[in-house]
Amino acid sequence: MSKRIMYVCLCHGVTDRDIRQSVHQGATTMSKLCKRVGCGTQCGKCVAHVRQVRDLALAEINDRMATEARIGCRFHTT
C-alpha cells in the first residue's frame, strides 16, 4: 500500500513528498526549501505547514543519523 500524498502548496502544486525529498537533498532552511520547490512564494498561506513538514523531515534525518551512530559504535570499539 502506497503512502498518500498531501498537497501543501496549492499555488505551485507542492506536496509533502516534494518537501521531504528536498530536505533530504539538502534544502534544510526555509529559504532554500522555498527556492527549490516554489512554496511560499505566491500567497504564503502554506508557509506554516511547509515548516511543519520540513521539521518532521529534519527529525527523520536526525533519528536516522543517531541510529547509524549507535550501530556504528557496536562495530568500532577502542
Rank of each mutant, 00 (worst) to 15 (best):
M1Q: 02
M1G: 07
M1N: 03
S2T: 01
K3E: 02
K3F: 05
R4G: 03
R4F: 03
I5S: 01
I5H: 00
I5A: 01
I5K: 00
M6D: 12
M6W: 06
M6I: 08
Y7W: 11
Y7P: 08
Y7D: 01
Y7K: 06
Y7Q: 08
V8A: 01
C9A: 00
L10F: 15
L10V: 10
H12F: 07
G13F: 07
G13A: 00
V14E: 01
V14W: 02
V14M: 02
T15R: 04
D16G: 11
D16E: 04
D16K: 05
R17K: 13
R17V: 14
I19H: 12
I19L: 09
I19Q: 03
R20H: 11
R20Q: 13
S22M: 12
S22G: 14
S22T: 06
V23E: 00
V23M: 01
H24L: 10
Q25N: 09
Q25F: 05
Q25G: 01
G26D: 00
G26P: 06
G26C: 03
A27L: 04
T28Q: 10
T28W: 01
T28N: 06
T28A: 02
T28G: 01
T28D: 03
T29P: 03
M30C: 13
M30Y: 07
M30F: 10
S31M: 12
S31V: 08
K32W: 05
L33T: 02
L33F: 00
L33R: 01
C34G: 00
C34H: 04
K35C: 05
K35N: 07
K35T: 02
R36D: 11
R36S: 10
R36L: 05
V37F: 02
V37T: 09
G38S: 04
G38C: 04
G38Y: 10
G38H: 03
C39L: 05
C39Y: 11
G40E: 08
G40T: 08
T41E: 08
Q42I: 13
C43T: 11
C43K: 10
G44F: 08
G44K: 07
K45M: 13
K45V: 13
V47Q: 06
V47D: 12
V47S: 05
V47T: 14
A48K: 14
A48Y: 14
A48S: 14
H49D: 15
V50D: 02
V50G: 03
R51F: 08
R51Q: 13
R51D: 12
Q52E: 12
V53H: 09
V53W: 07
V53F: 02
R54F: 05
R54K: 12
D55E: 06
L56E: 11
L56G: 06
L56F: 05
L56M: 09
L56Y: 05
A57G: 04
L58E: 00
L58P: 12
A59W: 08
A59T: 13
A59I: 11
E60N: 04
I61K: 07
I61N: 02
N62H: 14
D63I: 06
D63K: 08
D63P: 04
D63M: 07
D63S: 06
R64K: 15
M65P: 04
A66C: 12
T67I: 14
T67F: 15
E68F: 09
E68K: 07
R70K: 14
I71G: 05
I71S: 08
I71T: 15
G72T: 00
G72V: 00
C73R: 14
C73K: 14
R74C: 11
F75D: 07
H76N: 09
H76V: 10
T77A: 12
T78P: 10
T78M: 15
T78Y: 15
